[in-house]
Design a binder for these strands. Structure first.
Lengths: 223, 223
DNA sequence: CTACATACCAATAAAATATTGGTATGAATA
DNA sequence: TATTCATACCAATATTTTATTGGTATGTAG
């Protein structure tokens, strides 16, 4: 067995046994060559083999890393979190989410729907607001994913990010009485039922009604 | 007149006459003091006055700049430009823009509508695709602005950013025959007419039809 | 009281240096 | 002849160092 092949094996082993964790950075070529007691050019040949097998990736000036090279950095877009307000956010949600429900009614998989049902059960059983909110969020998100439009999902998540803000959080907390939660749970069940039976029109209508209820509860009581 | 007041006057004059352009950086306090032949502490008093009047802003380590301090850096969200596709983008546009038109029909100002009309005239008169596209973009943008929802405008702009991509640009170029442009111009006029007469239902319907025409021309001819 | 000169500090920008992978070359060894 | 080694150099990137900037404080002079 050649020097190179020995190095390939040893590096393979070190990666497999977790000595070099996934996504972690390996030592530099110069120090790794010294550590394995081979020349740097031999090491480079071994690394090239491992890279071609998808075990690691290398980048000039950065280093050598375990695993697959991360996807190209996404573009980013500015989000006017400090300039918008709850009313605008609800208005946007009322535009997006009923249409998301239409697409979800057409495109949801059995797995999607199973998870939606899980969210319903967990949300219904929640003992505090934070838990309820978490499952509420998860439900809306899986519906958005079920729409199967990457861009639309990104926009949905951006809107959610704005909702996550502190000023908004206080409104949520004060609004979510037990009575209202019960009503939202019923509305959630109806939405998921409509999606499951592939009824796009009902999905849209029920989502719109749910969001109007949320909006009215939130805005009328406090403004 | 005191030394400080003289400095305030002189700096005021230099800013007003454009010697220090809007948003540009002034020389450092040390060199400005030397230039005006006053002490740095006197200059600082003059700068403080001008800053309190909104003429300029100062930041430790960065410098002194003409005009108002820019808004705090927005939060950003990732935009999946490399993961979406023309079909998804059109689907999202068909969700957003008809609803934007509804809001614009309710909320557009006379100034908005005047500018919409200007876009129509300029788009109609365009002699090449790039110019037409520019006025097309400006029209859609002023409609989105007329909806008067900051968050919705941000989402609209995000979708536009994705549209601006190279792979997308080629599709646009091949699709825009003279005949099609003529048809789009007519559709644009109808959309603006509906917005102007505050007819939300027609605005929505006409926008949807326009976008469907664009989508069909774009996707059917090439896929 | 105003203005000046000077010293020092925190925040930021710019410049310099170090580190990383990539390529090339020539010599030694099996 | 193929493999391995040692060495040199370069481009890309990261880190460190130095310079610059506004901010504050102090003491002196008019």
């Amino acid at each position: 067995m050649s020097s190179k092949e020995l190095a390939v094996s040893e590096l393979h082993r070190l990666i497999r046994n977790g000595h070099y964790a996934p996504q972690s950075q390996l030592p530099s070529e110069r120090s790794l060559a010294e550590q394995l007691q081979i020349s740097r050019s031999t090491l480079r040949k071994a690394l090239a083999t491992l890279e071609s097998e998808g075990e690691l990736w290398r980048h000039v000036g950065r280093g050598t890393f375990v695993g697959k090279c991360p996807a190209v950095e996404s573009e980013v877009f500015p989000l006017p979190a400090d300039l918008t307000n709850p009313s605008e956010v609800m208005e946007v949600r009322l535009i997006l989410e009923p249409e998301i429900a239409v697409l979800a009614a057409h495109r949801a998989t059995k797995t999607d729907i199973t998870f939606m049902r899980q969210c319903l059960v967990k949300g219904d059983a929640a003992r505090d607001t934070a838990t309820f909110e978490m499952w509420d969020g998860a439900l809306h998100r899986v519906i958005a994913e079920a729409a199967r439009n990457t861009l639309l999902l990104a926009l949905f998540q951006a809107v959610n990010a704005v909702r996550g803000h502190a000023i908004w959080g206080e409104l949520k907390e004060a609004t979510l009485t037990k009575q209202r939660r019960k009503r939202y749970v019923v509305q959630h069940y109806n939405m998921v039922n409509a999606i499951e039976r592939r009824d796009a029109v009902d999905s849209q209508r029920l989502t719109r009604e749910h969001l109007k209820a949320v909006r009215d509860d939130m805005l009328n009581k406090h403004y």
